[in-house]
Amino acid sequence: MRIVAEHLSYTYNAGSPFASKALKDISLTIEEGEFFGILGHTGSGKSTFVQHLNALIRVPSSMKKYKPKKPKKGEVLPPKTVLTVGEFDLTHKKTDFRALRSKVGMVFQYPEAQLFAETVKDDVAFGYKNFAKEKPKAEEIEAAVKDALEIVGLNYEEIKDQSPFDLSGGQKRRVAIAGVIVTRPEVLVLDEPAAGLDPLGKREIMELLHKLHREWCKTVVIVSHDMDEISENCTRAAVFSEGEIKYVLPPSELFAHSEELLSLGLDVPLTAKLCAALKARGVEISCDFTTEDFIRSVLALRR
């Protein structure tokens, strides 16, 4: 499913003294099959954007109470907002938002905070049962839960009857992810999927996301502060700052703008720092900013 946003704006607490513009007329297209990165600080608008994707935040024109404004004489209306995910038009009132949510999985930061059921099995089944059109059979549920737990790398038989609260941190996160992907979403959105994990845990989660991207969800969108995570994994990345999108580029081109990124208060990957430090010493390196390509390029220089 292709994601298209055009002229999308959003204001929190509109019309009150606390009003704050979170998105200012942004446009962005994410193609099917991408492993897309979204960068930016807290408050840059990236979370607001991402929450639009499965209608946790709704475009005003899709709300029941919405009445289109009639332009006053001489007034120019702002350009029409477009927001589509595959065949779903998110600006329309009659869109089946439940069906949309089953197709766009959303993994929040620290997703283990959403665990609630007595057993791992029940927790993972929650989403499956909620989205089912008719009451699913027990075998169907079990099969779906088993598949979801196994793809995230857990042993179904061992873990299914345990309490999710007795698991280790990394296991909890996997169970929480299984609870989202159990409906086989086509788009999987994750907010800081590796936050708070130790380095090994981080690496394992990134490996898991690649596996999911290959075998389970066509499009993966990750929101991250960690530039190394973006440079190593993403096909393209969008940089959000103060409600606007500054860049949409593949990492190999994006991190050539190191100075601009730093001036936005963002970090750059280690490889970009090394390239800049080398350039300052008169050594030009051309690489796509992945660790492996950097090493290859440096070694190639010597030979």
Binding site: A113, Q114, F126, V180
Partner: peptide
Amino acid sequence: NAQKARGA
């Protein structure tokens, strides 16, 4: 939001 995203 997390539970809504899971269809609650």
